[in-house]
Simulated scan of single mutants.
Amino acid sequence: MSKIRITKQFSFETGHALYGYDGKCKNVHGHSYKLSVTVIGTPITNRNDVKFGMVIDFSDLKKIVKEEIVDIFDHATVFNETTPHIELANELKERGHHVILVDYQPTSENMVIDFAHKIKKRLPDSIALHSLKLQETDTSFAEWYASDNL
């Protein structure tokens, strides 16, 4: 049976700041992120399975990505917990804002690595994460490929 790749796209709004950066992104700002999640597997051949013919039900993939990423990162502000931004993060939290503290600089590159780890641990054994594309703006994105990370 052939291996098939399927892709589901997601969008979410997230703010961040890059501590120590030498450009505008050192300031708190936000993006309308677009995340494309591509998995690879073999379509189910059991005719008695309700998922017959599917690699994975799009709704099952959606549930994983929403729970691990979209529902957490949407309308949140992400800061590196190991920088002085922690003071700003704590102030925002005290005022009721949704803040996520991570142990990395919250660039698209590092976020896509984090997202890959979160998604991979939730996929069924028969399905592999093939790639992620995290689009930060209309012209800028980071990509993660399993084949690059063996």
Results as ranks from 00 to 15, higher is better:
Ser2Thr: 13
Ser2Leu: 10
Lys3Leu: 15
Ile4Gly: 01
Arg5Met: 12
Lys8Gly: 05
Lys8Met: 02
Ser11Arg: 13
Ser11Thr: 15
Thr14Ser: 12
Gly15Arg: 04
Gly15Leu: 05
Leu18Gly: 09
Tyr21Lys: 15
Lys24Pro: 11
Lys26His: 06
Gly30Tyr: 08
Lys34Gln: 15
Thr45Ser: 10
Thr45Lys: 13
Arg47Pro: 00
Val50His: 12
Lys51Ser: 10
Val55Cys: 00
Asp57Ile: 01
Phe58Leu: 09
Lys62Ile: 02
Ile64Asn: 01
Val65Cys: 05
Glu67Pro: 03
Glu68Leu: 00
Ile69Lys: 01
Val78Glu: 07
Phe79Ile: 03
Asn80Arg: 07
Pro84Ala: 07
Ile86Arg: 12
Glu87Cys: 09
Glu87Val: 15
Glu91Lys: 14
Glu91Arg: 13
Glu91Ser: 13
Leu92Glu: 10
Glu94Asp: 15
Arg95His: 13
His97Met: 12
His98Phe: 09
Val99Ile: 14
Ser108Leu: 05
Met111Val: 06
Val112Phe: 02
Phe115Trp: 00
Ala116Thr: 04
Lys118Phe: 08
Lys121Asp: 05
Pro124Phe: 04
Asp125Gly: 10
Ile127Tyr: 03
Ala128Leu: 12
Leu129Trp: 01
His130Ile: 00
Ser131Trp: 03
Ser131Ile: 03
Ser131Arg: 03
Lys133Gly: 01
Leu134Lys: 02
Gln135Met: 09
Glu136Lys: 05
Thr139Glu: 13
Phe141Asp: 11
Ala146Asn: 09
Ala146Leu: 11
Asp148Gly: 02
Asp148Pro: 02
Asp148Ile: 04
Asn149Ala: 10
